[in-house]
Each structure stands twice: as C-alpha cells, then as structure tokens.
C-alpha cells in the first residue's frame, strides 16, 4: 500500500485531465462556475471510487471478452444513483449540469481507470486509486472554474469581485474552455519537463 505515491500520481504526475488527457468534454463544458465544478467533481469522485471497488471485486469472475460491457453496466448503475440523488437533494446543481451528469457514463476517466487499474489490482488499492484520481480531477475542475468565473464573469461563487464592465466575457463561452485548458496542460508539461531536467542533472 502506498497511499502517498498514489495521491501524488493522481494530483500531479498522472493527473487524469492534465497528463492522461481524459474526460475532456465535461472538463470544458461545465467549468463556468465554482458550484458546477464542485458538483461535477464530487459526483465523478464518488462514482469513480464505487465503480473501482466493484470492478476490482468482480475482476476474477468476468471473462476477458465482455469486460468492457460489464464495466459500462456497473458504471451506468452508479451514475443513475448519483443522478437521482442530485435531482432529489440539490436540484439547482442538477439543472445546471444537465445532460453532463448521465454523460459521466462515457467519461473516459472512469472507464480508463477501470481498465488500467481496477481490473488488475485489489479492492483496497482500487478504492484508493479512485479517491486519488477523483481528487485530481476535482482539483483541475476547480482551478478551471476559478479562472473562468473570476476573469470571465468577475464573480466567485456568485459574489462579485471585479466590477461589471471589466471581465473578459469570452472566457465563459466555449472558446474560453478550450483556451484555459490548453494553457493549463501547457503549464503542466512545462512543470513536468522542468522537474525531469532537474532530476537528470543531479
């Protein structure tokens, strides 16, 4: 068990969005306000952890050929649960995330982790992996929300920080999603290559 290393991988060196470049659709589509990002991030965190646990538990019973179909059914089941819970308890967030909640089923992060990690490792390790990757995803969402909401709308969680005439409205539009995510990935590549160079020169 190596919790520290898994956490570091999820947050930085193997970050699902910035390094593995998975789950782009939701990352760009819903990061227009902090509340949206938090709702989406926590939903994915919960679904990822639960589906990782179940898939790790049944990994020896599932024939190799139909594993993808099995993964999808397990994930779809949990997504439906989370979707219904959101609609019941936080209807405002459910309404603003809209079609992107059921679309978590085809979010590559969850299927990718099931295939790459949970299908090969034990239940406990897979649960930890789910939590770490989920936190990594949520963190990126929050950073994107922070940039897009603060600079695009001039507010943070609905509280106005920048007077109405100054914000760059473009950032809340689809264009902003592409540009902000591109810049974040470029920053990540720069940081990773720099730390690699440092290790090599030692």
């Amino acid at each position: 068990m190596n919790f520290g290393r898994q956490l570091k991988e999820g947050l930085l060196t193997q970050n699902p969005v910035l390094v593995q470049v998975l789950g782009m659709c939701s990352t760009m589509a819903i990061t227009t306000s902090i509340a949206n990002g938090l709702g989406m991030g926590v939903s994915v965190l919960i679904i990822l952890t639960l589906s990782n646990i179940v898939i790790a538990a049944i990994r020896k019973l599932v024939p190799d050929k139909i594993r993808i179909a099995m993964f999808i059914v397990v994930i779809a089941g949990f997504v439906t649960c989370v979707d219904l819970c959101l609609q019941a308890f936080v209807p405002a967030i459910a309404a603003s995330l809209g079609v992107f909640i059921p679309l978590i089923v085809v979010n590559c992060i969850i299927l990718g982790r099931a295939e790459a990690f949970a299908y090969k490792n034990g239940v406990l390790a897979s649960a930890v992996d789910g939590v770490c990757q989920g936190i990594g995803y949520t963190l990126v969402l929050l950073v994107m929300c922070f940039i897009r909401e603060l600079l695009g709308a001039g507010t943070l969680n609905g509280i106005r920080l920048i007077p109405e005439q100054y914000p760059v409205g473009m950032l809340t539009l689809p264009v902003g999603g592409f540009l902000v995510l591109g810049t974040l990935i470029a920053t990540m590549q720069w940081a990773l290559s720099r730390s690699k160079n440092k290790e090599e020169s030692k």
Binding site: P174, V175, G176, L181, G182, T183, A186, T187, Q189, S193
Partner: peptide, 23 residues
C-alpha cells in the same frame, strides 16, 4: 511554437479559435 505547447495544448488553442469562428 514553444516546445511546452507541443501536442494537446496547441491543438486545444486551435480548436478554441475554431470555436470562436463557429460562434
């Protein structure tokens, strides 16, 4: 373009400009 923008970042910026055009 700068080396750190290689791969996905430059592709995303391109897509962003296309999205602007489609607007």
């Amino acid at each position: 373009y700068p080396k750190n923008w290689d791969g996905f970042p430059i592709a995303l910026v391109t897509a962003g400009l296309m999205a602007l055009a489609f607007m």
